[in-house]
Design a protein around this nucleic acid. Structure first.
Lengths: 112, 112
DNA sequence: TCCTGAAGTTCGGAAAATCGGAACTATTGA
DNA sequence: TCAATAGTTCCGATTTTCCGAACTTCAGGA
């Protein structure tokens, strides 16, 4: 298994962030991670909304979020602890993440 | 030629906006449109940065921006007048567009 | 009216990205 | 050492993107 790659702050690309969050599953995962202090495992998201996400797809989604610099994944025993990198991203692109999270809430509120 | 489709404010999706702006050419076009009051034609963007964009690709890019609700395109004689819909999007997703434009500037500044 | 040129759009095939099932790896606990 | 669990990797099928070529639309002459 390859070691996990996490870009440094300066290598984070706006393009990659927007692409990562342009998927409904990924933005849901990220919004959840950004809204909590405790790390979440991948399987915590095996279903998003009413959809069931296959393990392989989940793994890809986490990889995209990780390589965009949005989350940090650390192995802890048999599972993966995922946390958001909001604070770091905020330093590079001030206000970007809060605006997207807020927009995501606006849309989620409307759907309900 | 099919009539152009512009989504109404309430049909604008966050997902579509993020996807539209996750492309370097499109975010450059949109940042430019958002930063000026005067409408721009498509050919005004036939080159972005140092890259030359084929007409057919440009047309597709404008279509993506239009259908995401980010711009409005109106035929004026032989050409197309494109303007941003920032004010409308701001009403639906407050702060989202300014944050992305700002992030785009941060990145553009770094590249220079 | 009939050209001609300019501005975009549409078509279609090649290239790239995405999805998900099956097989694999890594780690813990019995 | 064996079994179970969490996640990754592989790979084929589907979907999306890219761009050249052909087409449409409109304005301004001759």
């Amino acid at each position: 298994m390859r070691p996990m790659f996490h870009p440094s702050i300066d290598d984070i690309r706006l393009e990659a962030i927007l692409h990562a969050l342009s998927d409904p599953v990924r933005v849901a995962i990220f919004a959840n991670l950004a809204g909590t202090d405790c790390a979440q495992t991948c399987t915590a998201f095996s279903s998003v909304g009413d959809r069931t996400i296959p393990k392989s797809s989940l793994s890809q989604h986490f990889k995209v979020l990780r390589e965009a610099g949005l989350i940090r994944s650390e192995r802890q025993g048999v599972e993966m602890r995922n946390t958001s990198r909001c604070v770091e991203v905020q330093a590079r692109f001030p206000g970007l993440i809060p605006a997207i999270i807020e927009a995501h809430k606006v849309e989620a509120a409307k759907a309900a």
